[in-house]
Design a protein around this nucleic acid. Structure first.
Lengths: 140, 140
DNA sequence: CACATACTTTAGAATAATTATAAAGTAGGT
DNA sequence: ACCTACTTTATAATTATTCTAAAGTATGTG
């Protein structure tokens, strides 16, 4: 109970610090995204479908987009792209890498990849981050 | 002249081996893409606009999409994505990496990045390729 | 507590990138 | 020259996303 309250607080805080009032819809989205053990990869469409399929009163598409967008801008979600013109989001915002296996995404912990050599940033620029994508194919 | 013929042949061969008859439109697209010194990054929309703006008889959107798609499937173009739901293509198909600087893409030669440590592929899978994206920001 | 104001939600329209369709055009081989 | 299969094209359809405007809700102030 105490635990649940503090968890809710986390979800609400994420919303507040993203500049969003914690309305019912938004708190439910925030819970759905962040109340889980493993990191979560999703598209807005997938998020909407999995939440709305369990609900009688549906949350509108625009609310999903707005909420995800604000959470991403605030840094609580990480956006990435595959080759299918859809935005994917990842609840794991720590710097990390990905396996891509036929549209399926698997996280790779940051410390699993280290570099021997990296190029310098062009003059006037600096490196914000480095992301590695390892594409997989079937063995044979 | 000899040179020009052999160049055209290259463009035509790329089309043929992509399963496309070398029609006028397709040969022009192939030339436009591959007859240049530096590698070329583009979206289909950009390609269409830059070619059609110089032409009285426009090539249709569908022809651009079809041709680019076939060239990509045959391995003459490499597709990649930024965070804006648009497909980018690169005439540099050698394994290489990218700087991303505010939607601008800069190639990084493959040998500029080497790894000290890479994870193993999950069982049953093997690594097809490894791509690194280095995101840049302004120095201050 | 009532209300004004500002922020939200929502359905639906608008936009952008891409793919599908079907009719008219063209190329090659015979 | 002609037949057939492949192409091109304009346009419609689709998908992901953003915009818009109306109706709903929350909050602070008096």
């Amino acid at each position: 109970m105490d635990k649940m309250n503090s968890k809710n607080k986390t979800f609400i805080d994420k919303l507040r610090s993203s500049g969003l009032r914690p309305t019912n819809q938004r708190v439910e989205i925030s819970k759905f995204l962040f109340d889980r053990k493993k990191t979560f990869h999703f598209t807005v469409e997938e998020l909407k479908n999995s939440m709305n399929s369990k609900r009688s009163k549906k949350i509108s598409t625009a609310t999903f987009y707005n909420t995800v967008h604000a959470l991403k801008s605030a840094g609580y979600l990480k956006e990435f792209s595959l080759e299918n013109n859809t935005s994917y989001y990842d609840t794991n915002i720590t710097s990390h890498h990905h396996f891509f296996d036929n549209g399926k995404v698997i996280d790779i912990k940051s410390d699993k990849i280290t570099f021997q050599k990296l190029p310098e940033a062009p003059k006037g620029k600096k490196i914000k981050n480095v992301e590695v994508v390892i594409r997989l194919e079937n063995n044979n």
